[in-house]
Every structure is written in C-alpha cells, then in structure tokens.
Computed example of a mutant assay.
Amino acid sequence: MRKRPLGKTTLQVSELALGTWGLSGDGYGPMVEAEIDRVIDRALAVGIDLFDTADVYGRGEMERRLGKRLQGAGPAFVVTKIGTDLEGLPPRKRFDPAHLRTAFERSQERLARDVVDVVLLHNPTMAAMRSKESLAFLRDLKQAGKIRAFGVSAGSADVARSALRDEVDVIEIAYNAFLPGDLHEVAGDVSESGAAVLARSVLAHGLLAGQWSADREFFSFDHRAERWTREEFKLRIRQLDVLRPLVTGPVVSLRAAALRFVLANQLVSSAVLGPRSVAQLDQLVREAGMPPYLGDTALTELSARLRSAGITT
C-alpha cells in the first residue's frame, strides 16, 4: 500500500482509506456483524492504515468497533466527525463548543484513544463556519494534545474554502469523475494552505462501478432510493459512456477508471472507500493499480468528454 503525506501534518497515511458509513448499516441497509469485522481486519492486512468514521455512524457503534479492532494492530489512524446531536428532538446539527466537547469525549471513549488522530466538523453550514467557535474549539483540542489534526468534512466548495482559509489541517470533500468541480474549485486554496484532502464518494455511491442497468431499483432502506429521480438516474447511466475510453490496458473496468481518476489527483491524500464486503475491498485494492494512475492525455480528453456530457469539471 502506497503512502501519501496527510497534508501539512507529520503523518504519512495509506492512499486508500476505509470508510465505515456503509458498514454501519445506516446508508445501504443491515450488515452481518462478522463481515464488518472481517472488512476492518482485511483492510489492515492489505496495508490500509487510515479509517474514516463519525460519531453518528451506527449511533457510535462504528467508533466502538474500530476502537476494538484497531487495538494492537500496529500503526492505524482514525478520522472521526462530530457535530450532529442525535439526542435532540428532532436530531439536528450542533457546532456549539458545549455540544462538541461532549461529543468529542464520547468519541474518544468509544475509540479507546487518549489522542484521536483527526477530528472533523461533520458537514457544517456556512453559518456555523462564520461563527468561528467550532474551529476554535478543535484548535484548542490540538494545542492541548488531545487530537493530532482537525478540519471539516465539507458539503460544498464554499464550506471547504472557508475552512481552508481558517487554516484547518484536513478537509474531506466529495470527489469523483462525475463530481470533480468542488475540489477543482478550491484547488488553489488547498495548495496555498497545505491542507490534506480526503476524497469521499469516489464511486458516487456505486454508480461509477458501471454495473447497474437503467431500470435498477433500490430497497426503501437504501439511501440511493431517494438520491436520484428516475430520469436523473437514467441520465447518469448514459453518462457512464464518457468513462469507457479509459478502460484500456491496466485499467480493467469502469470501477478502476473511477478510482484511478481520484488517485491521479496529487492534492488527494487518501481516497475513502466504502466496501461492504471483503470481496469488494479486495477488488478495489487490486484495481487501484500502480502509478501513473491515468495519463495527462487521458485526463484532458476525459475533461472534454465530461463537459460535452453536461458534467461541470
């Protein structure tokens, strides 16, 4: 497993990370508990040392599980996210220091770590970013030696840019071949700040694996049932054709092309994967391949095809 610098921190992390939202059962439906453990253990075995989670994944269960599975497993870094109050009626986002302090202490206990590697605000609004209190709280945790790095999991380029200008260590942002624009929009800010980029949604929730037909339907408990209208979904399936010219030589599938697109961007410190089985994880690790992931000519031609298909690059 190749390593990359985690931005301006002193950490070196695997360029593939294991995301745990899918394993939690929250997004795609129930998981067999034994398979969750097998996926985590397999990630460690293939050299993945960066694990992405949040205090709300499985209502804290994924943090607890990582706390157990990673103990004594050698170097392993955890990124967790806080800022959602599930105890409120209704549950809501909260980024006030009082809530964040309680949330962090609970995460720290579940992860069984005196020092948490990376803590991110979980999808804050621009209003939360403007208040400055939440980032000041995380900065204080870092100065106190309770976390190694801090930042924001951003839902938009505006939030990411605001975080970068407030000198965070890490941003997490959706980045894939069908959604390249947010990261490209803040690329200059990333370069200037030296912050690490964790790329999530690298397969667009499975779409970019290229294995669905246009009439694919999802179960009601699967978040993808509400993600696209039927017409939007059919359009996305047609747009997959712009990726097919990349499938040549060592790029053996659309899934490989999509993953290599993310890894080809040197701003990305790690691509956060979301496998729900050992077989899926092994497939992704195998198909990531070796650098150069995609050539400059291939990327330039892809950008032109994406624009012609109506995808903003």
Rank of each mutant, 00 (worst) to 15 (best):
V190A: 05
L23T: 10
R276P: 13
L284H: 14
A157K: 05
E301N: 13
P292G: 07
R38G: 04
A149Y: 01
G88F: 07
Q283I: 08
S303C: 14
Q283L: 13
P275I: 14
F137C: 01
R42P: 12
E87T: 08
P5K: 13
G72C: 04
R139T: 03
P180D: 11
L284V: 15
R165D: 05
R224T: 02
S14P: 11
Q108L: 01
L302E: 09
R161M: 02
H223T: 08
P245Y: 15
A98Y: 00
A43S: 15
R113Q: 03
F233P: 10
H122K: 12
E192K: 04
S277Y: 08
L100R: 03
Q266V: 11
F233Y: 15
V152A: 00
L179V: 13
R236C: 06
A256V: 13
G151T: 02
L23H: 11
T20K: 10
D282K: 08
G194S: 04
D189W: 05
P90N: 04
Q239E: 05
L23Q: 10
G60C: 09
L23N: 13
T312W: 15
E226H: 13
T248I: 15
R106Q: 09
P180M: 12
A103R: 06
Q239P: 06
L111W: 01
T248V: 15
I36M: 06
E301Y: 10
L254E: 15
K81R: 14
R224H: 06
R94T: 03
A177I: 07
A103M: 07
P124G: 03
R200F: 05
D117I: 03
A288I: 13
L141T: 01
S253D: 11
K234D: 03
P291A: 14
S107V: 01
A271M: 12
A214H: 09
K81L: 04
R276L: 08
G19E: 04
Y293W: 09
V118G: 01
G72I: 04
R38T: 09
R276E: 13
A103V: 05
L207Q: 01
R148G: 02
